[in-house]
């Protein structure tokens, strides 16, 4: 269970609240979509969950573990895929994967099984012997995804995961997300692609100017909106 309680974050002297008193409860086995226009506070919220930005106020817990008080314990339950994967480009793909696996303490057999599976699935098995600097944006993205799947995370957080992926990999990723939910894990992702959110998510939250302005299943969101059609219309109406 991922819980955010009264989370706020302010940047700079201007005292602009990037995230303003956000509360979220996400249950195991849920795919949770986090939507909002540019600069709404999506990435800031995600960074606070994964330990990159300390919230000014509020508490974040995963299965009861406070992310900011027991970071090590919390981090070993989380995998994070940022929107723009800046990774060690002088390492070979395989060196990077092994490094991440070592940090999560993934066992030999587990590592081999997972690497075999995901490298095949994302079609990068032949590339992992090359240095990362030679990869395209999409390949880097797939490498980061693979590395994030090595440790069986309880909470899988992705910031704009579909950007840069080819259709087949995007499809595979969606399958993986579904499968993880079936195993009782939490998938939390932000996106601009409303279609993906609409089709994939169990629940959706829409954030605007740092505040959650709507949250619920697609059905619930529809019932709140005036024009009860697509998520696109609901989104446009709410974030106006």
């Amino acid at each position: 269970m991922l819980k955010l309680r009264n989370i706020s974050k302010t940047y700079g002297r201007a005292q602009v609240k990037a995230v303003d008193n956000v509360n979220l409860d996400i249950r195991p086995g849920e795919i949770f979509g986090f939507l909002g226009p540019n600069g709404a506070g999506k990435t800031t919220t995600i960074k606070m969950i994964v330990g990159l930005l300390k919230p000014d106020e509020g508490v974040i817990t995963i299965d009861g573990v406070n992310v900011w008080e027991e970071p090590l314990k919390a981090k070993s339950m989380i995998s994070y895929v940022p929107d723009n994967p800046e990774i060690y480009d002088r390492l070979k793909g395989i060196e990077y994967l092994n490094f991440i696996a070592d940090m999560y303490g993934v066992s030999k057999d587990d590592r081999r099984k997972k690497l075999d599976y995901y490298l095949e699935l994302f079609n990068i098995k032949d590339a992992v012997g090359d240095i990362i600097a030679s990869y395209s944006h999409g390949m880097k993205q797939k490498l980061v995804l693979t590395s994030a799947l090595l440790n069986d995370p309880k909470l899988f957080i992705l910031d704009e995961p579909m950007v840069g992926l080819d259709p087949k990999s995007a499809f595979n990723l969606k399958e993986i997300m579904r499968k993880m939910c079936d195993e009782g894990r939490i998938v939390f992702f932000s996106t601009h692609v409303l279609e993906v959110a609409e089709r994939l998510c169990d629940r959706i939250a829409i954030i605007n100017k740092g505040k959650i302005i709507a949250m619920g299943t697609m059905e619930e969101l529809r019932s709140h909106a005036e024009e009860r059609e697509s998520l696109e219309k609901i989104f446009l109406e709410l974030t106006e």
């Binding site: 395989i94 993934v106 030999k108 081999r112 690497l115 012997g129 090359d130």
Partner: peptide, 17 residues
């Protein structure tokens, strides 16, 4: 980059702890 045309990675590299 070899784009896969280079030498294949050894499977032992997949499980070096």
């Amino acid at each position: 980059a070899t784009k896969g045309r280079g030498k294949k990675i050894d499977t032992s590299e997949l499980s070096r702890e």
